[in-house]
Design a binder for these strands. Structure first.
Lengths: 206, 206
DNA sequence: GTCTATAATTTGATAGAC
DNA sequence: GTCTATCAAATTATAGAC
């Protein structure tokens, strides 16, 4: 059950980047926080800092997708699922003293112009999030094209909400986003199908 | 008409940060790009890199607010105003080869945990944007509380849309956001007042 | 206001012993 | 796999001549 060195390195890097950003995080900080020597870091990540960032993005992308799907599985209705996700994100912000909840957006924005490997993996993660949200909306009765647009909107609202709430040191922007969620989802589902709600019930009660 | 040294320094810093982020931009790069010597930079900004970032945020905040208000002034209807803003942002992305359109979100995310002066000025700029959008929505017939939520949503969508489009090197996410805009605005205005459209006409034709 | 020179520190990365 | 020692380069910032 003890975490491996590799895992400790990735976890420590993720937390440091959430606090200080990609360029603001040094390998010496990672070495101290993990803890692991510089030699160990390069043993597991011969590609250096860039490879480490890729690992952080892949790991975070997977964790958040699973979180979203577990929230969705428990939600009473589609609109509540998204609201609940934003509420949970707000709680996380408070618990962590407004450290950035997502290292991916930060890294992507910092190095999208200078590191193609990082840009590509961040793009793939965002796509997987959009796909997960879109699938859920379609299953709930939305039309595919509208579901894709709305899912994209949710990811932008999540990343943008993190920036505003972190900057303001208040969850108020994230709560405003959560409030806007319900009518958006309700509209997409009713537009996609008059029996959208019935379809959802059929799926949930299966 | 020739730009002052101070202006050249701020402009160069803003462009560099849009490409490489705050921590990814060095004063030697600024010195070369401005152009201005390191001594000149410290002459105008004794507070160093942090003070320079504050100036960039204030300048960008003002420019974007003016851009938003000029688009609003020309728009036929409220929903079109926001769509047009997102479309223009998309065009900017393409023209600049997907350099980040907004240095503020990047800087804020990188150093919100380490620089209170920067965090505060970024927060003030976001607030001013929310206020400008909210005022416009209220004048168009929306209820104040709903206008504030929707305005907050627009700023998060803008920042989040920039991240996704920059990461994907495609304006598709930004266009998806633009498509979602119209029904949101229409709904807020009709809910706020049955004569929202009439109120807008009265204001525009004054 | 502009310029060069430089101080003090830290960075990402590598080499090689164990 | 882990460790220490070290490299070359770059960083922010300051000093002081002009």
């Amino acid at each position: 059950m003890a975490s491996s060195t590799r895992e400790r390195i990735v976890t420590a890097t993720s937390e440091l980047i959430r606090r200080y950003g990609y360029n603001g995080t040094s390998l010496s900080q990672v070495s101290k926080a993990a803890p692991a020597t510089i030699g160990s870091i390069y043993h597991f990540f011969p590609g250096g800092k860039e490879a480490l960032a890729v690992a952080v993005i892949e790991s975070t992308g997977s964790v958040y997708r699973q979180l979203f799907e577990s929230i969705v599985a428990e939600a009473d209705d589609p609109a509540a699922a998204f609201s609940h996700f934003f509420d949970q994100a707000g709680q996380l912000l408070i618990e962590t003293d407004y450290i950035d909840p997502c290292p991916i957006g930060t890294i992507a924005r910092e190095v999208a112009s200078t590191s193609e490997p990082i840009r590509r993996v961040a793009d793939a993660v965002f796509d997987s999030w959009v796909e997960a949200a879109s699938d859920f909306l379609v299953h709930s009765g939305a039309q595919p094209s509208e579901a894709h647009d709305l899912a994209t909107l949710f990811v932008t609202m999540t990343e943008g909400g993190f920036i505003l709430s972190r900057t303001k040191r208040s969850i108020e922007p994230l709560l405003a986003v959560a409030r806007a969620t319900n009518p958006l989802v309700a509209s997409a589902i009713s537009a996609g199908s008059p029996t959208g709600r019935a379809r959802l019930d059929a799926r949930v009660n299966r």
